[in-house]
């Protein structure tokens, strides 16, 4: 009985959900997010209606290795924003088990300081098979929170390694969080995650080894050096020499390394100020438009890719895939040839 009514109650009309999101109804906001995350039949109508109301929030990505203190930093940063009178939406992502499809989402454990504050809305998401540090629908959930009117949206990625850089095409400002003692100078100059930082944060800066980490990161920044800007080139983020910035020193964005002890809120207000400086710079330099362009192009491309995937796989003749897998295993063909043959069937 309870279960039957559960189904009945959950089928709020799209109009009711949209109205709820736009008028601060937290229950309907939560239910809208569920629809969007589950990509239900209603989801595209909801996003269609909410999209025009989005585009006002500043989106801040927080990424870094597991255990660097991302959740604690997000909590401390959210509190600073609340003290500054701004409302905050939070999306925190944890991994889905590749074996069972289940997930343990534990970011709330560190976020209890935000409990009871109506100016904060926090949602946990599982990756559900995505590998880039976010989940497939994270961007859509951010759109919903944006339309709901939150001033700042903090997106915490899963604990990442070196190459999960998807957050850079979702956020306006990306914070890469490090902690002392995690790696040497060579780690710092490898490609990937450090390159996407607008601000580098050494959290747990009361721990030993902080100076070595600081030196390594600063050295990396010096090597990277000259002013760059992001462009998108065949699905890659590309840093190029920014012509506007070439002559004007004050136009360049300087990636800085900041030290925080998030558990004690040390350095977090300074970090918040730096994020706001970055936001102002994005607007003043015209880089905001570039990033929005990048973000939207990325979203569009992902939607098309997912839909093409679905269409192609749904038209694949039953059993042909398995036959091909067997043939490849027997070394009668190879994966590239087999893929070409299968696609040819369509």
């Amino acid at each position: 009985m309870a279960a039957i009514t559960a189904l009945a109650q959950r089928s709020e009309t799209a109009t009711a959900l949209i109205d709820g999101v736009l008028h601060g109804n937290r229950l309907l906001l939560a239910r809208t997010i569920t629809q969007v995350e589950n990509q239900t039949a209603q989801a595209s109508d909801l996003l269609h209606a909410l999209y025009p109301h989005s585009g006002r929030a500043h989106i801040i990505g927080v990424t870094g290795a597991p255990g660097t203190g991302k959740s604690t930093l997000v909590t401390a940063l959210a509190r600073c924003y609340r003290q500054a009178g701004m409302t905050v939406g939070i999306v925190a992502i944890d991994p889905t088990s590749p074996f069972t499809g289940g997930a343990l989402l534990g970011d709330r454990v560190r976020m209890r300081a935000l409990a009871g504050d109506a100016g904060v809305f926090m949602r946990s998401m599982a990756t559900r098979g995505s590998l880039g540090g976010l989940s497939k629908t994270t961007g859509d959930v951010v759109t919903v929170l944006d339309a709901a009117g939150f001033d700042r949206i903090l997106v915490e990625t899963v604990g990442v390694g070196q190459a999960e850089v998807e957050i850079a095409s979702t956020a306006h400002t990306t914070l890469v969080v490090e902690a002392p003692g995690l790696g040497d100078e060579v780690q710092a100059i490898k490609a990937g995650i450090l390159e996407i930082a607008d601000v580098l944060v050494i959290n747990k800066a009361d721990r030993p080894g902080v100076d070595a980490t600081l030196r390594a990161l600063q050295m990396m920044l010096q090597i990277e050096g000259e002013s760059t800007r992001l462009v998108r080139h065949h699905g890659q983020l590309l840093r190029v020499e920014s012509p506007a910035a070439a002559g004007a020193e004050e136009q360049r964005w300087q990636v800085t390394v900041m030290k925080t002890v998030a558990a004690e809120s040390t350095g977090v207000e300074e970090l918040r100020a730096q994020v706001e400086r970055h936001r102002e710079w994005l607007v003043a330099s015209g880089e905001m438009a570039v990033r929005e362009q990048l973000r939207i192009a990325n979203t569009l491309e992902n939607i098309i890719r997912a839909e093409l995937n679905r269409r192609i796989l749904s038209r694949m003749p039953d059993g042909r895939m398995n036959e091909m897998v067997d043939a490849i295993r027997r070394r009668e063909t190879d994966p590239y040839r087999a893929a070409a043959d299968l696609l040819h069937l369509l």
Binding site: L27, G102, R108, R123
Partner: peptide, 30 residues
């Protein structure tokens, strides 16, 4: 952990939660 292994998405909030904190989390997490 067992619920995770059963394929559920488990939101773990930790100890010393008030009923208000639990209800609020249940709402936001739907």
């Amino acid at each position: 952990r067992s619920l995770r292994d059963a394929g559920f998405e488990v939101i773990y909030t930790g100890i010393r939660q008030t009923p208000q904190m639990i209800a609020e989390a249940a709402l936001q997490e739907d």
